[in-house]
Design a protein around this nucleic acid. Structure first.
Lengths: 233, 233
DNA sequence: CAACCTTGCGTTATCGATAATAAGGATGTT
DNA sequence: AACATCCTTATTATCGATAACGCAAGGTTG
């Protein structure tokens, strides 16, 4: 037991609390299927099919598909159809570099604006990750992991950049999960966030920067650090 | 008439040729209004209003708004409404840095895959820019400018990254246009692309990299080069 | 045989109407 | 005066039906 289930009401925009919208529920469900690979890359999705399968109208499916398109998880071709996006190593590496740039180059802003509420939220998400790891739920762990990094970036107050980070995060995780052995050390993934919270709590940007940089660059193993070329930590 | 009008059939995905879709026409129109500032930041947009104004149904407006949301030009709040996105200097600077990372760090791939068709398309777009500059049409110039950089990036063959570049480009231009004096030297903007084409035609990556880097970093004047901090050209 | 038209099919795009949601103001209660 | 509750209103969300599109297969014409 040790770790008790966390109060979900304190979790921020992790899931934008509007599960009341059917299109959003559908979006979340399809997102999970795609990230986990249950819907394989290139698989065709048709709106009326999904509508029947999920007992809702075509418009609702459309809305969900457009949200997935926005994250780059599906590709919509006008009048032709929708298919699940590919999952290439080259794209994954490029997206990881972009993520590194986004998260690291705005750290000064994050540290300058860190408040207690942020630290509390991050600790809550850390616990959520621990619980997911204990339950061996790799996907749920990735959900909270994304929520953690998004919440951190929220402090930078760059609303127009947030969607880019969102896209990078989901594709990082998709690539990682699709290559991962069945059950890797999930607790370890959760615990990797501890030093980040500590450095942030101490407002120690000099310590935080290399920690976060390393954290990001070692998420996926791209072999002989291709992603490190020319990246200043 | 020195410069003749170019054959638009040779222009690539500049405007995805489906102007037959009403939602896309609406998207293009609203995009222009927002980038030019005719629709001011924070202005509220309601779906039924737009539907009446453009003589189409609410669903069509919805689709257009979702496409704008995807580019970050509007912000949609579930059940609450839609408003034009803000236009902050901080966001603009961050997006410019991301754009720099995206375009420059993939140059090796671009050069390795450059074919004659690419060079032909880029020269066509250069001519289109010259025509727009001659006609003092700053917006049209920006449209072709974006098409130029997107076409260049297309050669990198990183389809999951392209939407990120699209978003950066549109926001770069939006920020630039909203701060520009009435009629700056538009021809100059067009001509700035000439050395890029030449270096690319010579497959000279060593020459191309600093050219493109400088090209990007000097698009908007952010004062004492804030954007250059820690950016390796 | 090649180029061109036609038609059928799978799919998305658009429409108009109705339901659901959230916010703020009015109302009544302590 | 403070507070909860109910209503009104502005807006999006969802529905079901129909129109439009793009492609491919097959037929037609020179």
């Amino acid at each position: 037991m040790a770790i008790e289930s966390i109060d979900t009401s304190s979790i921020p925009t992790m899931v934008p609390r509007q599960s009341s919208r059917r299109s959003h529920a559908l979006f979340v469900a399809l997102q999970k299927d795609i990230v986990l690979g249950d819907l394989a890359p290139e698989k065709a999705l048709t709106e009326l099919d999904l509508a029947q399968r999920f007992q809702c109208s075509q418009s609702t499916v459309r809305e969900a598909l457009m949200q997935l398109h926005e994250e780059g998880l599906v590709i919509r071709q006008p009048n032709r159809g929708t298919h699940v996006a590919p999952c290439n190593a080259d794209d994954a590496a490029a997206l990881l570099r972009i993520r590194h740039e986004v998260e690291c180059s705005t750290l000064d802003r994050v540290v300058a604006r860190t408040q207690d509420a942020l630290l509390a939220d991050l600790r809550g998400l850390l616990n959520a990750m621990r619980n997911a790891a204990r339950d061996a739920d790799e996907y749920l762990l990735s959900v909270y992991d994304r929520a953690f990094h998004l919440r951190l970036f929220e402090a930078a107050d760059l609303p127009l950049v947030t969607p880019i980070l969102t896209r990078c995060l989901i594709h990082n995780h998709r690539y990682k999960i699709q290559r991962s052995q069945p059950n890797r050390a999930l607790d370890e993934t959760a615990e990797r966030h501890v030093p980040i919270i500590e450095a942030l709590a101490a407002r120690d940007e000099a310590a935080l920067r290399p920690l976060l940089s390393h954290h990001i660059l070692t998420i996926v193993d791209f072999g002989p650090d291709l992603t490190l070329q020319g990246v200043s930590t």
